[in-house]
């Protein structure tokens, strides 16, 4: 466990020792603020529902940038060789990288607390609903990050890792958006049930449905397990 913490710590630090971390945070804050601003008017409810509802799309752009270098860059620079010849197990590497990216995601969300402060100043926000929305963003982010981590184990190019994650999820999200135009009922119901966006909307309005939590967590766990397998297979064919 201490090795996982060591790896997590190094990961978080390295985000802030390179420009990538700052660029990603700036990008996220700009998107989040634009969406927030659009709903921040007199007479509107004091909530961040818009930001949370759009979260799936905002994170789609940002999360692959967090994960793109996790393993691919280490492979390209050769530090991966040092990492796997030290006494760490593959799952510790995966866990360390994943937790590092999650910690970064949390740090990335903190500037939006400024929006919360604005709501407090100009209205009476529902803190339960806000906390719920943030939980939704973290869960959706964990699914993206686990997918991005897998992409990063499969290539030495950060750009490829980014594109694979971004385009893969974009295709999935668009397929759900346009599902009603090409699917009929038994299938459409099924598609609606596996669409992440309405699930994130539930969180945005302050609803914690256990099935939604399990939905995002199981996506993350699945991709983490696959990433771990990939690393093991590369090392011990």
């Amino acid at each position: 466990m201490s090795r996982v913490i060591t790896l997590t710590e190094r990961e978080v630090r390295s985000f802030f020792l390179t420009p990538v971390g700052y660029i990603v945070i700036a990008l996220f804050v700009v998107f989040a603020s634009l969406v927030f601003n659009a709903g921040f008017e007199q007479g509107q409810p004091a909530s961040m529902q818009k930001v949370f509802r759009w979260g799936m799309w905002i994170l789609l752009v940002v999360c692959p940038a967090i994960t793109m270098g996790l393993i691919s860059e280490e492979r390209r620079l050769g530090t991966f060789e040092l990492l796997v010849t030290s006494p760490v197990r593959e799952f510790e590497i995966i866990a360390g990288k994943f937790l590092g990216a999650m910690a970064f995601l949390i740090l990335m969300l903190t500037p939006t607390l400024f929006h919360v402060a604005l709501l407090e100043i100009y209205g009476r926000p529902d803190y339960g609903e806000l906390a719920c929305g943030y939980l939704g963003l973290l869960l959706a982010g964990s699914a993206y990050i686990a997918t991005g981590l897998l992409a990063s184990t499969l290539t030495t190019s950060q750009l490829l890792a980014y594109l694979a994650t971004f385009l893969g999820w974009l295709a999935v999200l668009l397929a759900f958006v346009f599902a009603p135009t090409f699917l009929d009922d038994p299938w459409l119901t099924f598609a609606f049930a596996s669409d992440p966006i309405p699930r994130l909307h539930d969180f945005a309005i302050g609803l914690i449905d256990m099935s939604n939590v399990i939905y995002f967590v199981s996506i993350a766990v699945f991709f983490l397990i696959v990433s771990n397998r990939v690393l093991e297979a590369q090392r011990w064919p």
Binding site: R10, R13, S14, L17, T18, L77, G78, T79, E81, L82, T85
Partner: peptide
């Protein structure tokens, strides 16, 4: 084993 790979890869930002 203490291992120094070819070209001494290091985390250059640290």
């Amino acid at each position: 084993i203490g291992y120094l790979p070819e070209a001494a890869p290091l985390y250059s930002e640290m």
